[in-house]
Structure formats: C-alpha cells, structure tokens
C-alpha cells in the first residue's frame, strides 16, 4: 500500500545517492516539485532516466546531482538547447556526464519491457542511423520465426520512478489523465515509486472503466503537492507556462545566473511554493 507522506519524507525514504531515477512526463505532468526536493536534499551520483529531459533535468545536471543520463531528446521544447546539459557534455561542468542515448521508440519500448518484467525490448528501429555506433546498449536480435533482424535494447528498471498525477484518494490510488506519456510503465518498471498529486479526494471516481488508474499497492509513496508540475501543466488544473520555458533559456545560459536561480528558488524554496506558481495563495 502506498504511504501518504510529505515530499521530503518520500524523497528521503526512496531515493539514495547513486540510484537510477526516472522523473517521467512527456511535456505534461512533469514532477518539478519532486526534482527540486532532490536538489535540496543534496542527492549525488544519480543516473537520470527520461525520454524528454527538459528543464528539471537541466536543473539536476547543473546542480551536480547526476553522474549520467539515459535519454532520447534533450532540449527545451520549441525554445532550443538545455544549456546546463550542454555545458556538462561539452565542458564537463559542473562534472562529467555519462550519456546513454536512444530514440523515443526504443525508450518507450524499454519502459514497457521493464513494466512487463522482461530483460529487453525489441523494435524495428535505428535502421541506417548512427546511434548504434555510439551506444553499445543498442544491439540486434533475430526473430526466431521470420529471421528478421530487429533492434534490441535493455529494458528500463529504475531504482526509483517519480511522476506527477491529477489526483489520489485517501488510500493512495492514483488517477492520471490527458497526455499520459510513459508514466504508467515507468511506475510499474521501478523498484520504488513516488507519485505527487494535485489533489487528494474522498472518491477517485474514474471517468471511465478504461481510465488510467495506478493502484495504491503498486506505488511506494503518494504526496499531495498542488502545482507540483509547474511550469509544466496538469490537464484539468492549470496550463503549461510556455513563458517560463522561454525565460529559462536566459536563466540557464550562464553558470552564475543559473546558480543564483537555484539558490533563490530551490535551496531557499519549498514544495508549498508551487501553489503560488499556479496562482493560488499558499
């Protein structure tokens, strides 16, 4: 059964230095508040996993929390580069970052294989592309029935997966709606998991019998963090702050302005700040 607790407790209990951790979210429902808590608690040597590492991974990398990252698209969507990620790869600042790079299709398949308790995923992928030349974890497998050679990648089994969702009931069952990305797979593939939610309700009331519900018994901790996905968004609650994504480009471009932002907004911040971000008084 999931335990309902505070964000600091959830991160402290579930995430250790050196862990592999996936904070998933495909543009929507990105667990920013949890990412900030990880930086505040000073976690080190993390191996980050995410299909679309965006600003929150730029922050984790720039803060020196990560030794490596497995990913398939590392940019600020519609804006440009992730400057802290680039500085780590191009100049090893604040420390070298080992990268394991895939395509979206391979990452999505690898999460699904992880959730299915399989050792690897197979796909018709990477044909004629250069990534297999630089990533030893992209290999071939021959179909035993047709002889077709397919791409194979190891399944993703994070030590910890963290996602943000719309709501949970008091037993810790979680409902997730809208662009659901790979969040269900990420939770089911992980050894331990934390879900932050916009709202805790008496009745979950899924709108359809096919709604995506993650049962309490498949989650380690559920945390109430309203606004916790800002500047990403929560379908039905608040919109994506595209203006913040645009503003981040300037903040992250220089090391000094980045560090000042982290000090002010993360080290001296708290999960309660996120309520203010979505226009509600704390």
């Amino acid at each position: 059964m999931a335990r309902l607790c505070s964000l600091s407790q959830a991160v402290e209990e579930n995430l250790r230095d050196g862990d592999s951790v996936a904070l998933e979210g495909f543009t929507h429902l990105i667990p920013y508040a949890a990412g900030h808590e990880i930086i505040r608690q000073g976690r080190k040597e993390l191996f980050l996993i995410r299909m679309t590492p965006d600003i929150i991974y730029d922050q984790l990398i720039g803060a020196g929390a990560a030794r490596g990252m497995k990913f398939s698209w590392g940019g600020n969507p519609g804006v440009g580069s992730l400057h802290r990620f680039r500085d780590a790869v191009e100049n090893q600042w604040p420390r070298p970052l080992e990268i394991e790079e895939h395509s979206h299709a391979a990452m999505a398949n690898a999460y699904e294989a992880g959730a299915a308790n399989l050792p690897f995923a197979t796909l018709r992928g990477y044909i004629g592309a250069d990534l297999p030349k630089v990533n030893a974890n992209i290999r071939d497998v021959t179909c035993p029935f047709t002889g077709e050679v397919l791409a194979a990648v190891p399944s993703i089994r994070p030590d910890v997966s963290i996602i943000h969702a719309q709501r949970a009931d008091r037993q810790g069952n979680v409902l997730i709606e809208g662009i659901i990305g790979v969040q269900k797979e990420a939770i089911l593939a992980a050894k331990r998991s934390v879900v932050t939610v916009e709202e805790i309700v008496d009745e979950l009331s899924p709108p359809s019998s096919n709604s995506v519900v993650l049962p309490s018994w498949a989650i380690s901790c559920v945390v109430h963090v309203p606004g916790g996905a800002f500047p990403s968004y929560a379908h039905g609650y608040y919109k994506r702050s595209n203006s913040f994504y645009i503003a981040w480009d300037k903040i992250a471009r220089e090391r000094d302005s980045f560090q000042a932002w982290i000090r002010q907004n993360v080290m001296n911040g708290s999960p309660e700040d996120f309520l203010r971000h979505i226009g509600k008084a704390a």
Binding site: T52, F71, S72, W73, G74, G75, S81, L82, F85, R86, V89, E90, E101, S103, H104, A105, L123, R124, G125, Y126, I127, A129, L131
Partner: peptide, 11 residues
C-alpha cells in the same frame, strides 16, 4: 555543439 538528439525521428 551538443544538439537535443533524435527523439522520434529515427523511427
């Protein structure tokens, strides 16, 4: 220059 990467493009 480190660019964002392939995302969905290879497949």
């Amino acid at each position: 220059v480190r660019l964002p990467g392939g995302g969905g493009a290879p497949e």
